[in-house]
Simulated assay, not measured.
Amino acid sequence: MTTESSSPAFAQSHATERDNPRQNQLLACLPEAEWERWVPHLELIDLPLGKVLHESGAPATHVYFPTNAIVSLLYMLENGSSAEIAVVGNEGVVGISIFMGGGSTPSRAVVQSAGMGYRLRADAVKAEFERSSPVMHLMLRYTQALITQMSQTAVCNRHHSLDQQLCRWLLLSLDRLNGTELVMTQELISNMLGVRREGVTEAALKLQAAGLIRYARGHISVLNRPGLERRTCECYRVVKKEYDRLLPDLVAI
């Protein structure tokens, strides 16, 4: 089991450029007064592939701000099946139920692309949300953008082909990473999209045959992003437009 590095002093004084808290765009948007209050409490943590950050129905103790990792929000059925409802990366935060007042959600938060991030205790987040108008407005705009992604994912999964869904998923993931490669097991991708592994293989091979990606042993390299954007459905553009509209400061970073 991977041990989390959770020393606030480490997060504050030993963060490299790769692990700078302000690589998370929400943290980078904090006004200076709020930033100075938050920094001593931000804990740098390792986010390995498959790590569960929040469990379905369990009280959340922290919010997480990924810097170079991607986290999937999965809805879990009683029979153990799951489907992804949203992805969160360096543009956002995992754990909106804490400051929205719910405390827990029926979804599970799982790291889908390994990396690093920062976490903040639930009580500190709630105090800042109630204390600071800029924090409240920033988090509420992000929450609206996240709800748009969840809604569009539901529509996409119902009405669009699997290879279109895979294109959308790849593009949303790339928007939340610096680079063109994803390390993903076939099983994890199938869990994210809520389909059989054979279906993921077939869809990925179609994209590979079209020269859009290279897919082998859990490694996906995007070779032609404009081609992916042309092949995907309108769902990707709807989600991106809403993030850009609600969080313009993030786009400029």
Rank of each mutant, 00 (worst) to 15 (best):
L205I: 02
G57A: 06
S81K: 10
N24H: 02
S113D: 08
E198W: 02
S72F: 04
V71G: 04
S13E: 08
W169F: 13
I189M: 15
L177W: 01
S82N: 08
Q112V: 07
R225I: 15
R231N: 07
R37T: 09
S81R: 08
R230A: 12
S13C: 07
Q208Y: 11
A86C: 05
R158N: 12
I220M: 07
D175W: 00
C233V: 07
Q208C: 11
T201C: 03
H14G: 02
G89K: 00
T67D: 00
I189V: 14
L223I: 05
P8W: 11
W38S: 00
P40F: 08
G92D: 03
E198V: 07
V200M: 02
V251I: 14
G57F: 06
L138M: 12
L42C: 08
A83K: 01
A114V: 03
R119D: 11
L247Q: 05
V39W: 05
V87D: 03
L146S: 04
G80T: 07
S7M: 05
L146W: 06
Y118T: 08
S82L: 03
A33Q: 13
S97E: 15
L228N: 08
P48T: 14
S6F: 09
W169K: 05
H159P: 06
H54E: 14
Q112K: 09
Y118D: 07
K206I: 10
T2D: 14
A252T: 09
L77K: 08
V222M: 09
G227H: 14
M76Q: 10
P66N: 03
G199L: 01
Q25N: 07
E229T: 13
C29E: 14
F65G: 03
N20S: 15
M76R: 10
A33M: 12
Q12R: 15
S173Y: 02
F129E: 03
A11P: 00
V87R: 06
L77F: 09
E55L: 10
H219N: 11
G115F: 05
G89I: 05
E32D: 11
R22G: 00
G103R: 09
K51Y: 08
G101L: 10
T180S: 07
M116Q: 15
V52S: 11
N24Q: 02
I85C: 09
R119V: 07
E128Y: 05
H54V: 13
I70A: 09
P48S: 13
S151A: 15
L247N: 06
V111R: 04
P21N: 04
Q23V: 01
R230T: 14
R230G: 04
E43C: 12
V94K: 03
H137S: 13
A122M: 06
T185R: 03
H62L: 03
C235M: 10
H62G: 05
E91L: 06
S221T: 15
V135R: 00
D19V: 01
L193M: 11
L247I: 12
V195E: 02
R168Y: 09
R37C: 01
P66E: 02
E91G: 04
E36Q: 13
S133K: 12
I85L: 08
D249T: 12
S7R: 09
S5H: 15
L205N: 15
I45E: 13
F10T: 13
E84F: 01
R22E: 05
V183L: 11
Q12S: 13
E17I: 04
P226N: 12
T180I: 02
W169I: 02
S161N: 10
L77G: 06
L174H: 04
S190I: 00
Y142V: 04
K126I: 12
